[in-house]
Design a protein around this nucleic acid. Structure first.
Length: 626
DNA sequence: ACGGCTTGAACG
DNA sequence: TCGTTCAAG
């Protein structure tokens, strides 16, 4: 449900920019023959010609609608060009459109705070830019106002709208308007310039709404599509909302909007004005009630977030009716495909944006034959995310089995999966720069006597050790197979009697082990991008690392990732470490500032309740759970 | 047999 | 926190 946010006092200038039939434009740019001809993009699906997911404006004239099937579209518009979404791994692949969206964001984010709202929409907070313009070169001083700005539609201008560019020019330059209207005029010009740039640099057209808050900007952006912009001066708001059907408002397109209509007889936003705030709160609760009261008055405090990238990645596929998956092996096949795509996507997110995803989630829809509760839903399951395609595949399959167990109550019943999806969420920036572990290690390597590293643990070695043991036990039950305990506890020279993992102890001299090996050894479990790109690692001084990591099987069910970056050696940019595969007691030996950094990387679900100052890392690992 | 595929947000 | 549900496009 919607929630009202506190409003800022100062007037803001907010824009909502929406690409016109975006997928179609992307395809038209790819194949210029499609320009100017009726076009739609269909998702591959041999069934009835596929489903339309975007319809160009030429085709809309024929009544072609999104959510028609390809066959219907052909009937409505025989000349329509139907372009298929690329298919990869047996499913629709939207990456083409995602990267086209990024091109646009790159431009739109240059003039102020920018929030990527979807693959083809952004919100902009242009308040500061508008203020600057007002100070430095207000519209009335401008010798030339951009043509595109003059084409704006200004709501409430004269009696009926859009008398022409001269009226718009007057509005933009109005010398005796109030402060917020002047800011809005500046915003209008800035948005016009941005849209022109987008067209020049990407060949994509877009439409925009410019207003004093997100809600109104969003409301305005589709009013004059395609390739135009609409401005909502504060003075025009009451009239605009008075006759606006409630369903047009974002958040009121669903059940809440229906309830307003059916239960209250509220058909326009204006109709809401008759209800007191108290009354709306009584009807819909404090949050939604307050929100409703405010939006009826055009008040919305939602801020534009400064975020250019998505908060999560997901991919899924449906298996309708007859295609339902009925064996774990077919589920595994498809899950592998989905995980492959997901892995690729989080990997490029890491490479390009230096972000790591912390949580892996599996969703499914399923039916089961008979039983008392045939309506029960397949439960979603999640776990810490480990990088590496095969790890993701393993973990996802495990989550599926957990979910299936729940779903069937561990009974033996027929079942079918009608949709599968995996997601990567809780994405965080990699702590960058100053205090990376690798930097510490490199310094160590060059200027360190091994005593630093090999000193006894400051804290409580016993505690730490027991944690390790617990984690082993835990791991075992989680995986149910192939967890080499040796590789896990391995030698931690200080905490305790090392398990003699033959291969390892030979590899490094003890001195080396102390100087660098001890720590590196625990950085096991995976180079970021499997096989292919890890080659970079081999070359350097850390050459031991490769063998170590490949020999050390994946271990833990808990995984937080760490990316080591290093400028001047050949270590892969994206060397990934599943952090919780590190022996916590080893990390406790690191300088406190690095420990602090590492604490931030530990998955929330694994953090233990300790606010104590100077707590060791070991304390931050929660004990085993089922 | 269905609109599919993605995202984000709020709630309990 | 995790899992569910809703909404949008």
């Amino acid at each position: 449900m919607p929630v009202a946010r506190p409003e800022s006092q100062e007037p803001r200038v907010i824009a909502h920019v929406d690409m016109d039939c975006f997928y179609v434009q992307v395809e038209q740019r790819r194949n210029p023959d499609l320009r100017g001809v009726p076009t739609a993009v269909v998702q591959y699906n041999s069934w009835k010609g596929g489903g339309l997911i975007a319809v160009g404006y030429e085709a809309r004239k024929f009544g072609v609608k999104r959510s028609m099937r390809g066959d219907e579209a052909k009937r409505a518009c025989p000349d329509i060009q139907l372009v298929q979404v690329p298919v990869a791994r047996g499913k629709a692949d939207l990456n083409l459109y995602r990267s086209a969206g990024s091109e646009v964001v790159a431009i739109l984010s240059t003039k102020g705070k920018c929030e990527r709202a979807s693959i083809d929409e952004v919100y902009l907070d242009l308040t500061d830019a508008a203020k600057s313009m007002l100070l430095e070169s207000p519209p009335e001083m401008l010798d030339s106002i951009p043509e595109e700005a003059l084409k704006s539609h200004v709501l409430g201008l004269s009696s009926d709208e859009n008398k022409g560019e001269e009226d718009v020019r007057k509005w933009l330059c109005q010398p005796n308007a109030d402060y917020q209207a002047k800011l809005l005029a500046c915003g209008t010009i800035i948005v016009a310039e941005l849209r022109v740039r987008v067209l020049q640099e990407t060949k994509f057209t877009c439409s925009a709404g410019i207003a004093h808050n997100k809600m109104l900007a969003k409301l305005a952006s589709p009013m004059h599509k395609p390739a135009q912009q609409t401005v909502v001066p504060a003075t025009s708001v009451p009239d605009l909302l008075a006759s606006l059907p409630v369903k047009k408002m974002k958040q009121l397109g669903g059940k809440l909007g229906s309830s307003l209509q059916d239960d209250l007889g509220v058909n326009t936003v204006g109709d809401l004005l008759k209800f007191s705030e108290q009354k709306l709160q009584d009807l819909y609760g404090i949050n939604t009630g307050t929100w409703l009261w405010k939006i009826a008055r055009g008040i919305s405090g939602d801020e534009v977030e400064d975020r250019l990238l998505p908060k999560s990645h997901g991919c899924g596929k449906t298996f309708p009716g007859p295609m339902a998956l009925k064996t774990t092996s077919s589920v595994k096949q498809w899950l592998n495909q989905l995980c492959e795509e997901l892995s690729e996507r989080i990997q490029s997110d890491l490479d390009q944006n230096k972000r790591v995803a912390q949580t892996l989630t599996l969703h499914a829809r399923a039916f089961k034959e008979d039983e008392v509760d045939p309506l029960k839903k397949f439960p979603s399951k999640s776990c810490p995310l480990r990088y590496g395609t095969s790890k993701i595949q393993e973990d996802a399959m495990h989550l599926f089995e957990l979910g299936l167990g729940d779903f069937l109550n561990s009974k033996n019943l027929g079942w079918g999966i009608t949709s599968l999806a995996v997601g990567a969420s809780k994405i965080v920036d990699i702590p960058n720069g100053t205090t990376s572990i690798l930097k510490y290690l490199t310094e160590k390597r060059t200027s360190c006597n091994s005593s630093d590293c090999s000193d006894a643990l400051p804290g409580e070695p016993d505690h730490a050790t027991s944690l390790i043991c617990q984690k082993d036990a835990d791991t075992k039950s989680y995986k149910g197979h192939e967890v080499p305990l040796e590789s896990k506890v391995e030698e931690n020279p200080k905490t305790k009697a090392p398990r003699e993992s033959a291969s390892d102890s030979k590899r490094l001299s003890d001195r080396d082990a102390n100087a660098k090996g001890t720590i590196l050894r625990y950085f096991s479990g995976g180079s970021s991008s499997n096989q292919s790109s890890t080659s970079k690692v081999e070359t350097t001084q850390i050459e031991e690392q490769e063998r170590i990591s490949s020999s050390t099987a994946s271990i833990s069910n808990s995984h937080q990732n760490l990316n080591l970056n290093q400028n001047n050696n050949a270590l892969s940019e994206n060397w990934i470490i599943n952090i919780e595969e590190i022996d916590p007691s080893v990390v406790d030996e690191l300088p406190l500032e690095i420990q602090r950094e590492i604490r931030g990387w530990i998955h929330p679900s694994k953090r233990i309740n300790t606010a104590k100052r100077g707590s060791t890392i070991a304390h931050y690992f929660s004990p085993a759970r089922k």
